[in-house]
Amino acid sequence: MNTIKQNHNDQGHEEHPIVSYREHLSTLVALLLLTVMTVAISVFGSNLRTLSVATALLIASVKALVVAYYFMHLKYDKKLYTWLLLIVGVLFVSFLILTSIEFLNR
């Protein structure tokens, strides 16, 4: 019966550290820099056409990861959430790959 107490009986927040304002601000600066980068490549690098699409998606993914990791607190949460997000990502990318295999081989 002792085990009952230690389990999650009326739990509030399982304490995670408070993220500082400064960290949020630097995250935003990083995101804005990436945005400037991707726009610049697209507008001024039009001679690198296919390359620019690939880099645009790459930069977008980096931005998405930054948002998820810092703003969405994945950094401070249980690792479970990171894993689940990765699995969802893998699943979605597999959908993309499988359908593109189909359409590219027509």
């Binding site: 991707t38 697209s42 620019s52 699409v53 931005k63 948002v67 998820a68 703003f71 969405m72």
Partner: peptide
């Protein structure tokens, strides 16, 4: 907050795919 970040996250992909290609 999580929901709002998701909205942001989706826009991060929509923006290059429609405006920057």
């Amino acid at each position: 907050g999580l929901y709002w970040h998701l909205v942001d996250l989706i826009w991060i992909y929509l923006f290059p795919l429609f405006y920057l290609i």
